[in-house]
């Protein structure tokens, strides 16, 4: 695996606010890379810096062995698909897609051929002469995608490409983006705040928060081994409990001691991350609490119970054993379940 894009210690502040704080990432050739983070975490700023629209306060961006600091955005072999699509309203679909090729002064014939075949690929073969305001949201999204891809950039940057679409179209487009990336063989960097989207599409994911990269890993790894409490909280549903480990038992903050055989040094302060499916509701449970809400998810029900810990505990029960809100409940988990997360 060769490194195509090396982002090295990049920082960028707006006024006092650090939008990017010492960000380092390596993105590989032909990878489908996702940047995931809550609103305001600096995702768009990072993409705009890669595209050349944001100058850096410090750090380097090396693309294919070349530092791009002095390369203006119109000469970078990188294209950006804008969050708002930014389709030119005074041009047809065809002219929108052809715009970048015309700037390269390609011959007419080549432009027509490349645009037409790409429009067919994204399923807009018969829309070439339409104006952009005559398109649906999903169609606009495809035009924006085609326009950014047609120049065959080394990297395609996509800023929340699917966020403006409704759920059904979004799911179709996730598959289609994957297929397209496979077909055209371009490295994709997708920004999203939707973790399911990132999990289902990306080869690797970088989780960002407040301008920092918290963890870079494959989706499975992120879910199974979150690197810190933020990632553990952000990815999937979980309950994070703080505790003190001593001779195979975890001393929780409510005074209850539970067995814990997870690998960790004795006497350490740790965070224990438990997924809802790790916890069971049983009369023999060592931890008691009060049910504060129940939420149905298909065959299961997510129960939230107040147990005198830092946060309410979330666990799953079958639909036949759902407690009522206000009921007392007893829960437990096996000593070898859960993940130890180190505080960062």
């Amino acid at each position: 695996m060769t490194v195509l894009l090396d982002i090295h210690n990049v920082s960028k502040a707006f006024d006092q606010l650090a939008a990017l704080d010492n960000v380092s990432l390596q993105i590989h050739t032909n990878e489908f890379f996702a940047i995931l983070g809550p609103s305001g975490s600096g995702k768009t700023t990072l993409l705009r810096a890669l595209a050349g629209f944001e100058s850096l306060d410090s750090g380097q961006i090396v693309l294919d062995g070349q530092d791009v600091a002095d390369v203006p955005p119109n000469e970078r072999p990188v294209n950006l698909m804008f969050q708002s699509y930014a389709l030119f309203p005074h041009m047809t679909v065809f002219d929108n897609v052809a715009y970048g090729l015309r700037r390269e002064k390609r011959p007419q014939g080549e432009i027509a051929e490349r645009v037409t075949s790409l429009l067919a690929t994204v399923g807009l073969g018969d829309m070439a002469t339409r104006r952009t305001h005559q398109l649906s949201g999903g169609q606009k999204q495809r035009v924006a995608l085609a326009r950014a891809i047609v120049k065959r950039p080394k990297i395609l940057l996509l800023d929340e490409p699917l966020s403006a679409l409704d759920r059904k179209v979004r799911e179709d487009m996730q598959l289609e983006l994957k297929r397209l990336q496979h077909e055209v063989g371009i490295t994709f960097v997708v920004v999203t705040h939707d973790q399911e989207e990132a999990m289902s599409m990306a080869d690797r994911i970088a989780v960002m928060d407040q301008g920092r990269v918290e963890q870079v890993a494959t989706p499975v790894e992120l879910y199974k081994n979150p690197g810190n409490p933020f990632v553990a909280n952000f990815i999937g549903t979980s309950t994070l409990l703080r505790g003190h480990l001593s001779s195979g038992r975890l001393h929780l903050t409510n005074g209850v001691k539970v067995p814990c055989s997870l690998p960790s040094e004795d006497g350490a302060e740790i965070w224990l991350m438990l997924r809802p499916e790790d916890i069971s509701q049983t009369p023999a449970g060592a931890i008691t609490g009060t049910v504060i809400s129940t939420n149905f998810y298909g065959p299961n029900c997510l129960v939230v119970a107040e147990c005198g810990l830092e946060i309410p505990v979330k666990y799953l029960v079958g639909n036949s054993e759902v407690p009522r809100v206000g009921d007392a409940t007893k829960i437990s988990w096996a000593g070898d379940t859960g993940v130890v997360v180190r505080a960062s």
Binding site: A51, G52, F53, P72, P73, N74, E75, N79, L80, F82, Q83, S84, A86, L87, F88, Y99, G100, R103, E104, R147, A148, K151
Partner: peptide, 15 residues
């Protein structure tokens, strides 16, 4: 005019 339209043109190679 949405400023991203101008940026989109520049991104696609326009000066």
């Amino acid at each position: 005019i949405d400023p991203s339209l101008r940026e989109a043109a520049i991104d696609l190679g326009a000066s």
